[in-house]
C-alpha cells in the first residue's frame, strides 16, 4: 500500500504508529438503538442513544411496525437507528412502576425551557397530578403556563416522562401528546381518581388540608389521600388555607402563585 520503507525512517514509522482506535462503542455515538418493551397500556417502542432515552411511541400508534417506528425516528431526529440487543438498564422496571427518575434521557434538540419543563414533570409521583401552573412556577417561569402546556404536548418521551400527570386546574385533564383518551387511561391505570378530581374542581375545591397535621396539599397528593373524611378541610385557594393557619405540603408544594 505504501512504497516508503518505513524501517529506514523513524519519523515515518512513528507517524504510522499514531493511528488511533476510536473508543469502544463509538458506533453508538452515531447510531441510536430501539427496543420493544411492555408499557402500562400495551407495548411501547423506546429509542435511546449513548446519552439516554430519546423517543417513545406506543406500538399501537405505529401499527406494531418496528420499521415504521424506526423511520419515524430517523425523520424526526436525522439520526440512524437499529434494533437493540436488549433494552437499556432500568427501562422495563421504570415502565412497570411508573418511576423513571433514575433513567437517563437524551433531550438534545429541545430548548432549555422545554427540557426544564420535562425534567420537572419527571418529579410528579405515580398516581398524582399537578396543574400546568405548578410546573411553570417550579421552574421559575410562573407566567409561562401556556408555553409549559406546549412543551408537554411535544414531549418526545411520553409515559416515561409523565406529562400525563399534568392537568388543568379546573379539573379537566387537558390535552395530551398521545391523545386525551390515552391520558385518561394512563391516569386510570395509576389509580388517580379522576372522578374525585373532577368533582372537587366542580365544587371549587383545589386543595385539601388536614386539621390534624395542619398541612395543605393538592388533592391527589399521597398525604391528602390519607386524610380521613372527618379531618379533611377543603379550600378553593391556597391563600385561604394559609390564612386559616395551614402550611403548604413540602412534597406536593402548592404555592400562592397558582391559585389564580
Amino acid at each position: 500500500m505504501n512504497s516508503i520503507n518505513t524501517d529506514e525512517d523513524p519519523v515515518i514509522r512513528s507517524l504510522g504508529e499514531l493511528v488511533a482506535q476510536p473508543p469502544v462503542g463509538f458506533d453508538h455515538l452515531v447510531i441510536a438503538r430501539y427496543a420493544l418493551v411492555p408499557g402500562p397500556l400495551g407495548e411501547v417502542f423506546v429509542a435511546f442513544t449513548d446519552r439516554g432515552i430519546s423517543y417513545v411511541r406506543p406500538a399501537d400508534q405505529v401499527e406494531q411496525d418496528a420499521d415504521r417506528f424506526a423511520e419515524d425516528f430517523r425523520d424526526r431526529f436525522g439520526r440512524p437507528i437499529e434494533r437493540a440487543g436488549r433494552p437499556p438498564a432500568g427501562l422495563v422496571p421504570a415502565l412497570r412502576t411508573g418511576r423513571a427518575r433514575e433513567l437517563a434521557f437524551d433531550l438534545r434538540g429541545l430548548s432549555e425551557f422545554e427540557q426544564a419543563v420535562l425534567r420537572k414533570a419527571l418529579e410528579i409521583p405515580r398516581g398524582e397530578v399537578r396543574p400546568y401552573a405548578w410546573i411553570a412556577r417550579e421552574i421559575g417561569r410562573p407566567k409561562a403556563v401556556r408555553a409549559t402546556g406546549s412543551a408537554l404536548g411535544h414531549n418526545p418521551v411520553p409515559i416515561l416522562i409523565p406529562c400525563h400527570r399534568v392537568v388543568r386546574s379546573d379539573g379537566q385533564i387537558g390535552n395530551y401528546a398521545l391523545g386525551p383518551a390515552m391520558k385518561h387511561e394512563l391516569l386510570h391505570a395509576e389509580e388517580v381518581d379522576l372522578e374525585e378530581v373532577g368533582r372537587l374542581a366542580a365544587a371549587g375545591v383545589h386543595y385539601l388540608a388536614s386539621d390534624t397535621t395542619g398541612v395543605v396539599c393538592y388533592p391527589s397528593c399521597r398525604h391528602a389521600r390519607r386524610i380521613t373524611p372527618p379531618h379533611r378541610v377543603p379550600f378553593g385557594t391556597l391563600g385561604r388555607a394559609v390564612e386559616a393557619g395551614y402550611r403548604p405540603c413540602r412534597d406536593c408544594r402548592p404555592a400562592l402563585a397558582d391559585t389564580a
Partner: peptide, 22 residues
C-alpha cells in the same frame, strides 16, 4: 442508506477519528 450505514461507520471510523485526533 440504513442497511449499509453501520458498515460505513465500522469501515471508516478509525480514519475519521485518527484524522481529527492527530
Amino acid at each position: 442508506v440504513d442497511a449499509a450505514f453501520p458498515e460505513l461507520v465500522s469501515s471508516y471510523q478509525q480514519a475519521v477519528y485518527t484524522t481529527v485526533l492527530r
